[in-house]
């Protein structure tokens, strides 16, 4: 249905439908973020001998995040006197918008997808790079030294990790022969790419954690070094936008990992296909998210110079080698 609309003439009705659909998706994602934050706090609590939220909304703290968001809405919105006002106000929007836009191409099931673009993967990577501009803007415009350091770190980190990230998925693209996410999932009918692209998966996963700015790669906001990094001067809902962007990216990246390497909505074994694809997707997706939470409560933070070294001297060569290896194997297989 969405495809037909995409190709139809623009009009009020089309716009209305798109608007409503986008609103629904936004609400779904906000719902995810709400419970991802709760899940993070609960899982970390469980791993750290604590309870986590257990007061607001029953024993599991189901409404804790809602209460937190309400509190953020009511908070005073402060802008430093010497900040670069327009940039300061614009930065959270620029950081958040792309995170939401990239989700349009993710195929949650074979039918549930917003935009089935031919170069979906490329689109995802290109758009997600924009967020860094917002982060650097926030760091610069805050007129705070810690924020500036955080923003600079973010820029350096993005450049070093975006490249291995792209290189690692090239193996997948080679095998599928397409950048369309639907076709990539369909090509995993028999075997998931995590099994035939293990190196690619490893590089992708590490680089994606770095892209998400999560421990052990959370240098731009390193709490113990830079206090909060680039958003140290933000408060209230502007601050919430940065956090929102972070969690929406977590959602997007976990979805992308599921699609690229874990077979998307496909069941583990074909006889299990009576379980709907959405459930499979949710299961695999949750597994990836859990891995990210697990990382957070286990690892210390890597150092800035080691981060660069690791990106350029380890991940990139490995990713490049993986491309060659994939190409050679594919060529050899096609010979027989």
């Amino acid at each position: 249905m969405v495809q037909d609309l995409l190709h139809s003439q623009p009009g009020i009705l089309n716009f209305g439908i798109f608007f409503i659909l986008a609103l629904v998706l936004l609400l779904v994602i906000l719902g995810f973020v709400t419970y991802a934050i709760l899940a993070e706090r609960k899982v970390m609590g469980f791993m750290q001998l604590r309870y986590g939220p257990n007061q607001v909304g029953g024993p599991w703290g189901l409404l804790q995040t809602v209460a937190d968001v309400l509190k953020l809405l009511l908070k005073e919105d402060t802008i430093p006197k010497l900040a670069d006002r327009p940039l300061f106000i614009l930065a959270p929007v620029i950081a958040f918008a792309p995170s939401f836009v990239v989700i349009a191409t993710i195929p949650f099931t074979d039918k549930l997808q917003f935009a089935d673009i031919g170069v979906g993967l490329l689109y995802y990577i290109a758009i997600s790079g924009l967020t860094t501009i917002g982060v650097v803007m926030a760091g610069w415009s805050s007129n705070n030294k810690y924020a500036l350091l955080g923003g600079m770190r973010a820029a350096a980190q993005m450049i070093s990790y975006e490249i291995p990230l792209v290189m690692s998925v090239l193996g997948v693209i080679l095998l599928t022969g397409s950048m369309n996410l639907n076709e990539i999932v369909a090509a995993q009918e028999n075997v998931w790419y995590i099994l035939i692209q293990p190196i690619g998966f490893l590089v992708f996963f590490i680089a994606s954690v770095a892209e998400l700015n999560r421990i052990p790669f959370d240098l731009p906001e390193a709490e113990n070094e830079l206090i909060a990094g680039y958003f140290v001067e933000y408060s209230g809902f502007r601050w919430a936008f940065f956090m929102l962007a972070e969690y929406v990216y977590m959602f997007a990246m976990a979805s992308l990992t599921t699609v690229l390497f874990l077979g998307g909505w496909l069941p583990i074994f074909s006889f299990l296909d009576f379980i709907p694809g959405a459930v499979w997707f949710a299961l695999k997706f949750s597994l990836v998210v859990f891995m990210l939470l697990w990382f957070r409560s286990t690892f210390p933070r890597i150092k800035a110079d080691q981060l660069m070294e690791f990106g350029w001297k380890v991940l990139l060569p490995v990713a490049l080698a993986n491309i060659f290896l994939t190409a050679i194997i594919k060529e050899l297989l096609s010979l027989f």
Binding site: Q48, L49, R50, I215, D218, N224, S297, P300, R301
Partner: peptide, 16 residues
């Protein structure tokens, strides 16, 4: 010390 290096959990184990 380990918390300063970014690992959050050890602090709580130490406090136990």
């Amino acid at each position: 010390f380990v918390l300063d290096l970014g690992a959050t959990s050890p602090l709580l184990y130490a406090f136990r």
